[in-house]
Design a protein around this nucleic acid. Structure first.
Length: 313
DNA sequence: CTATAAACCTGCTGGC
DNA sequence: TGCCAGCAGGTTTATA
């Protein structure tokens, strides 16, 4: 699942590959993915959103690509923005596809052609140089928003985001204030995009392992020193993961369809039973708010009076 | 503020 | 071997 490092990897690829190109066509077999930013309702799909996007995207030039939390923002000509959130299984790929009897087949690049997820490409933008930008998504959780910049910028998807986890202007003091306003377990708080944007299950686990903080500790009870440690670990883990082009424990792929290299550098995420890289104690898996969490029971001491909830798997 | 559940989806797992 | 129920998982929305 794409988190900050995976989205950043995709954004950097796109900056090299598609900035300057002009969109010549849009195709989709999944109109529900495209939300109308002018519609108040989050659940109702505007019938006009797809037609509007298909018509308005044509002829727009891609001026820049940036990241806000886990959102990918394309700044287009004529004052328009295209926002894509890959959610869990979304992939943004640059290549070429052929559509035959409703099924999508990859023509290039090689990794895309060989990818079984190819058939799950549901949205394609054709570019004036012959290449295409495709969004594949097995689970169909991804969201696409398109419209005038003013409409997109004011959406809760962007205005509701907390500071980016790698924002260089994010200070210990600001992070501290945000975390300590929450009573929930620190792991849950780190994954809340309205508190800090960009962190999901993979990096929350590795960040807390590095900071030696137990994921069930209440955010409010953290000391300033512990928060500084979390902040530092956050920067180090996310920066390394960006350098290594993300994690592919699940199905993340970059815009060429290639896997990320942080997978082999994970400390605890999805390493239940394997030795802790620091002390060799077997990694434990617990469940927090319905989500799996991985930790070293020796390095990360459970908060006092807490019965660690454990499950297998 | 907090917790919980439902919704969005479909590939995969587990039970029988 | 096959079928089907149930689950995962980021985020929003609703409800209490």
């Amino acid at each position: 699942m794409p988190e900050l490092p995976e989205v950043e990897t995709v954004v950097r690829d796109l900056q090299k590959k598609v900035v300057g190109a002009t969109i010549t066509d849009m195709w989709t077999d999944w109109p529900k993915a495209i939300k109308d930013p002018r519609s108040q309702s989050k659940t109702t799909v505007s019938r006009t959103a797809v037609a509007y996007a298909a018509e308005q995207l044509k002829g727009k030039k891609i001026l820049s690509v940036s990241r806000r939390g886990k959102n990918i923002v394309f700044t287009l000509s004529h004052g328009h923005l295209l926002l894509i959130h890959q959610k869990m299984t979304g992939h943004l790929l640059v290549g070429q596809w052929r559509i035959k009897e409703g099924r999508v087949f990859g023509l290039s690049p090689k990794a895309v052609v060989e990818d079984s997820y190819n058939h799950h490409v549901h949205f394609i933008l054709s570019l004036n140089d012959g290449r295409q930008l495709g969004l594949s998504d097995v689970r169909k959780f991804a969201k696409i928003l398109f419209g005038p910049a003013g409409d997109i910028e004011t959406l809760p998807e962007l205005t509701g985001l907390g500071p980016d986890a790698l924002d260089p202007t994010l200070t210990d003091a600001v992070l501290s204030a945000r975390l300590q306003a929450q009573r929930r377990p620190i792991k849950q708080v780190l994954m809340d995009p309205s508190v800090v944007a960009g962190i999901g299950n993979i990096y929350a686990d590795d960040i807390l392992w590095k900071a030696r903080i137990h994921p069930l500790v209440s955010a409010r009870s953290l000391t300033e020193g512990e928060i500084r440690k979390i902040h530092q670990s956050m920067r180090e883990v996310l920066t390394l993961a960006v350098e290594l082009r993300g994690t592919s424990t699940s199905d993340f792929r970059d815009t060429d369809g290639l896997e990320g290299n942080y997978t082999g550098h994970r400390a605890v995420y999805q390493r239940t039973g394997e030795p802790c890289p620091r002390c060799q104690t077997p990694i434990k898996r617990i469940v927090i708010a319905g989500r799996s969490a991985h930790l070293c029971p020796h390095c990360q001491k459970a908060p006092r009076g807490l019965l660690a909830r454990t499950t297998s798997r």
